[in-house]
Amino acid sequence: MANYSSNEFKPGLRVLVDNEPCIMIDIEFVKPGKGQAFSRVKLRSIRTQRVWERTFKSGESLESADIVDRDMEYLYSDDEFWYFMATDGSFEQLGASREALGDTIKWLKEQVVYIVTLYNDAVVSVSAPNFVELEVLETDPGLKGDTAQGGTKPATLTTGAVVRVPLFIIEGEKLKIDTRSGEYISRA
């Protein structure tokens, strides 16, 4: 496994920090004039998506992490694993655990392509595309006359996600949702 010295740190680098696979987001080189040099690194943990900061001494090195992102289409679940198929023509299938799926389970829909992140060939996380189209399973009927006020109400989608929608939305409608904010964008 390759090692990266602090002077090779750069955004996008995939490394192991305390045995946690991480991606570097930002690096700041700091050095008080006559003092020691440090690299302040912003990292994202692959497993938890948590963003955190850590300082390294100049000359410290980190082991590279074998992290790979793949475009994969969601197929089905057997309630233990959620299966995805590679869209690169290999038709390779991989199962993601509930833990690896994380919050993305709220935006999971068959035939949609997700980014599946592998660490040492095992699925550690799944990221949804920025926008998905999902159907409303359940919502209160809209109150007439309130539409001009721009009021909202909760709606439960087929995936179980609950989003705020305009009052005119009815059950069975397809909606476009921003998965980053979890917000309703428009009717699909």
Partner: peptide, 24 residues
């Protein structure tokens, strides 16, 4: 606390961390 790691520094080394991470 500031470095989020034990960098095994001497007193002046840690002061450099405090100066560059918190004071500056």
């Amino acid at each position: 606390q500031l470095a989020n790691a034990d960098l095994e520094l001497d007193r002046d080394g840690w002061l450099d961390v405090i100066m560059s991470h918190q004071v500056e």
